[in-house]
Amino acid sequence: MNFDVRVEIRGIDGLADPEGQTIERALPALGFGAVSNLHVGKIVRFRLAANDEQAAQRVAEEMCERLLANPVIERFEVTIRQGEQSRFLEGS
């Protein structure tokens, strides 16, 4: 079975995010002064063949722990959809 996997990676809480801070400081110049807690991360999307959703989740998390994220500075969130229902990979 094919699953579409979306991994969101961002800095761990409490770690300075200079890129997010810079963007947050720029927004008021455009009139968006109500923004706070802006963070920049990255998203990795891929298709994964697995027996079921639990297996896909497990494999994706292991991929995160071993390569996609650096646990010293990053945390990750895995979201999984069965291929046909997903729009994650559109446009990629």
Binding site: G11, L15, A16, P18, E19, T22, N70, V72, I73
Partner: peptide, 17 residues
């Protein structure tokens, strides 16, 4: 060396980008 775990910690983008 930090990514491989041979040294602790990590190196991130410079403050000030």
């Amino acid at each position: 060396l930090t990514e491989s775990g041979m040294l602790p910690g990590a190196l991130r983008s410079n403050a000030g980008m």
